[in-house]
Amino acid sequence: MAKTLRIIVACGSGVATSNVAAEKLKGALSDRGLYAEVRAVDMKSLESEARVADVLVSITPYATRDQELKIPALNGIPLLTGVGISALIDQIVALS
């Protein structure tokens, strides 16, 4: 059985934009017939959350920290603006 991809969606506070983005991501994955475990997290818990995740989708510009976190980091802004969601899902599919 294929392993379920664990995706964390991060923003500063973990209570606002990351939750909107996580919900949109679940919908966009579902539209492609994909399933992943998607969780919204805050930046304070990012390091610990990243230890048990496969991919980081970041709403704020923390993409450069991916080496530090040891998981790939993707730009999650398309999930808020609606522009480029398909390309983001392609990137996630490539990682699954």
């Binding site: 606002a16 934009t17 909107v20 709403i59 808020l80 603006t81 609606g82």
Partner: peptide, 20 residues
């Protein structure tokens, strides 16, 4: 400061600015 970090603008005429 939060606005400078990343967008809080959503689709459908919505925005969710926040300050911590």
């Amino acid at each position: 400061e939060r606005e400078e970090m990343g967008p809080t603008l959503l689709q459908d005429g919505m925005a969710i600015p926040h300050g911590q």
